[in-house]
Simulated assay, not measured.
Amino acid sequence: MRDCVIRSVGWTAPEASISNEELVKVFNTYADRFNAENADAIAAGTLAEIPHSSEKFIEQASGILNRHVVDKAGLMDLDRMRPRIPHREKEALAYQAEFGLSAAKKALDKAGRTADDLDGVIVASSAQQRNFPGVSVEIQNALGMTRGWAFDMTMACASAIFAMQQARELIRTGQADAILIVCPEIMSAINHYRRREVHFIFGDASAAILLEAGDREPGGWELQGVRLETKWSNALRSDFGFMNHTEFEDDEPFEAFVDQDGHRVFRDVIPMASGVSSKLIADLGYQPHDIRRAWLHQANIRIVQAVAKKALDREPTADVAPIILNEYGNTSSSSVLMTFDMHSSDMKPGERGLMCAFGAGYGCGAAIIQKR
Rank of each mutant, 00 (worst) to 15 (best):
R88D: 05
E89A: 13
K90N: 13
A92R: 07
A92E: 15
A92Q: 14
L93R: 01
L93I: 14
L93W: 01
A94N: 04
A97V: 08
E98M: 02
E98R: 05
E98D: 10
F99T: 03
F99H: 02
G100P: 01
L101N: 09
S102A: 14
A103E: 08
K106V: 13
L108T: 05
L108R: 04
D109N: 13
D109Q: 08
A111W: 03
R113P: 06
R113Y: 14
T114M: 08
A115M: 06
D116K: 15
D117N: 15
L118F: 10
D119H: 11
D119P: 13
G120I: 09
I122Y: 11
A124I: 11
A124R: 06
S125F: 10
S125P: 07
S125T: 15
A127L: 15
A127N: 08
Q128W: 13
Q129D: 14
R130E: 13
N131A: 12
F132G: 15
S136A: 15
S136L: 12
E138A: 08
Q140S: 13
A142L: 11
A142N: 10
A142M: 11
A142S: 14
G144M: 05
G144I: 11
M145P: 01
M145Q: 07
M145K: 02
M145V: 05
R147M: 06
G148W: 09
G148D: 12
W149P: 06
W149F: 15
A150H: 05
A150L: 09
F151W: 08
F151E: 11
M153E: 08
T154Y: 10
M155F: 07
A156M: 14
C157E: 03
S159V: 08
S159R: 07
S159L: 12
A160G: 04
I161Q: 00
I161P: 01
I161C: 04
A163W: 04
M164F: 03
Q165F: 05
Q165W: 05
Q165A: 05
Q166V: 12
A167C: 05
R168Y: 09
E169L: 08
L170E: 10
I171C: 05
R172V: 13
R172C: 13
T173I: 12
D177A: 13
D177K: 06
A178W: 00
A178E: 06
L180E: 03
L180P: 02
I181G: 01
I181K: 00
I181M: 01
V182R: 03
C183P: 03
C183R: 00
C183N: 04
C183T: 08
E185P: 04
I186N: 00
I186Y: 04
A189S: 05
A189G: 02
A189E: 07
I190Y: 02
N191K: 06
N191A: 10
H192Q: 09
Y193G: 01
R194V: 05
R194M: 04
R195N: 13
R196Y: 01
V198Y: 00
H199Y: 07
G203D: 02
D204I: 01
